[in-house]
Simulated scan of single mutants.
Amino acid sequence: MPGPKDLDPSSSPRAMLGAELRHAREKKGLSQAALGLKLFVSGTFVGQLESGTRRLRPDMAPLIDKVLETDGFFERNCGAAAKSKYEDHFAEAAEAEAQAAAIRQYAPLLIPGLLQTPAYARAVNRAYDPTATEETIEEWTEGRMERIRLLDHPTKPVLWTVLDEAALRRETGGRTVMAEALRHIADLARRNRAIVQVVPLSEGAHPAIQGALKLMEFEDAPPLVYYEGPGTGRLEDDPATVAQQRFRFDLLVACALSREKSLALIEALAQDYDHEENP
């Protein structure tokens, strides 16, 4: 019987690699948990590889080939599945985000990527690297806008964002850029495309005051939590950790303004930015 074909990088390589992994695992009579033990990862992680939610790391591919006796297939094809237009620390998170059925996030210092306008994204990218060329800034900005296209679907993913009032008052890119950015968020909320709430500055300390938070849920894979910092980020699938962060997000929602009051604040701030720019 002929072995599996090498992957075509132009045709959803991660999904194909995941399907081949499931086939090879089942052929060996191993459960996801049993294979995970041999690979020194969780069974949950194996399931996420098979569903295409997580990418196969190059350092893991040779071990998979050895355990499943796949004659170097995964090592040969891992490169196709690892290609991404995003920076290494964010690539896996961006790819998981695109497959998520629901995304819950808290943004303490800036408007998060899925809610940004091109002008706001450009200002953030320029601040991130003041010495980058204009071509690089535009490439990064277009990459962010491409991520946002997942919101073109009228209902999926469910997007629930809690913004800190500080992010709305931080003048990123100038008043005109901020006015446009806040009107864009208000439009998403009014069209019921996103659930948006604001934690007011008057709330003081709150459950997520230490940093940003993003939770992603999937139809055919366990949930993930993503932690991000300057130039770094990691996905976590440990069920206890995910549950803890989900609880933290629920507490944060309880601290936030209602959807109606949040929308009123966002629109009022947008008007203030407009007025101050054009008195």
Rank of each mutant, 00 (worst) to 15 (best):
Q116P: 01
V177Q: 01
D129C: 13
V67D: 04
V158E: 12
T232N: 08
S31N: 02
E134V: 10
M216T: 03
E95V: 05
A80G: 09
N77G: 07
T232W: 10
R55L: 09
L110N: 05
L235D: 03
V196S: 04
E139V: 11
S262C: 09
G36A: 01
G174V: 07
P118Q: 08
L265V: 07
A19Y: 07
G174Y: 04
D8E: 12
A221F: 05
H89I: 05
S258Q: 15
D65W: 06
L35S: 00
A98N: 13
P2F: 15
E139W: 11
L215C: 09
Q48K: 03
K214G: 05
E219W: 11
A15H: 14
T136F: 12
P118L: 08
F45P: 00
A212D: 14
Q244E: 12
E20Q: 14
I137P: 04
A96Y: 01
E171N: 13
L68R: 00
L110Y: 08
R147Y: 10
A264I: 09
A119W: 06
Y273Q: 06
Q105K: 10
P118S: 07
L224D: 04
K83S: 09
E219R: 14
L30Y: 07
G143P: 06
A270M: 05
K261F: 11
E165K: 08
H275N: 15
A61V: 02
P4R: 11
A186H: 06
L115N: 01
R144A: 10
E277Y: 13
D129R: 15
E87K: 07
E142M: 12
V46P: 00
P108Y: 02
L114C: 06
L68K: 03
E277W: 13
Y120V: 01
V196D: 01
A81S: 12
G18H: 08
L110P: 00
A15N: 12
G231P: 01
Y273H: 08
